[in-house]
């Protein structure tokens, strides 16, 4: 999977697709770093619209992202979480520490 980025004003949207697991590690990190470095972006949305599977290492990547985004004083939300993605996030109770829309 190759994450793509859409920037609208101060909102940066990271659109993921397919399987979000350890194989996506490098691309995901690169995309996130570029978004964090962009001073114009205040809110980061991770879009799961096209993701059909999410594993525990993906959850780890999200935790890392959350940490970095907080350090850069931006906000983060996980959006368009459906089916399997929603289920995995629910089991891990990530709703307690992430904004999920």
């Amino acid at each position: 999977m190759t994450p793509t980025v859409q920037i609208e004003g101060s909102v940066g949207r990271v659109i993921l697709s397919g399987q979000f697991d350890f194989s996506a590690h490098r691309e995901f990190r690169q995309v996130c770093e570029s978004i964090i470095a962009n001073a114009d972006i205040k809110e980061v949305l991770v879009d799961f619209q096209n993701v059909n599977y999410l594993d525990s290492s993906a959850l780890g990547m999200l935790l890392l992202l959350k940490e970095k985004i907080a350090a850069a004083s931006k906000t983060l939300a996980l959006v368009n979480c459906r089916d399997t993605v929603k289920q995995v996030l629910e089991i891990a109770c990530f709703g307690k520490i992430f904004t999920i829309r």
């Binding site: 935790l63 629910e90 089991i91 891990a92 109770c93 990530f94 307690k96 520490i97």
Partner: peptide, 11 residues
Amino acid sequence: CSSSNLPLGIV
């Protein structure tokens, strides 16, 4: 008994 907690090591 469903998971109702964050995994260990996060908070």
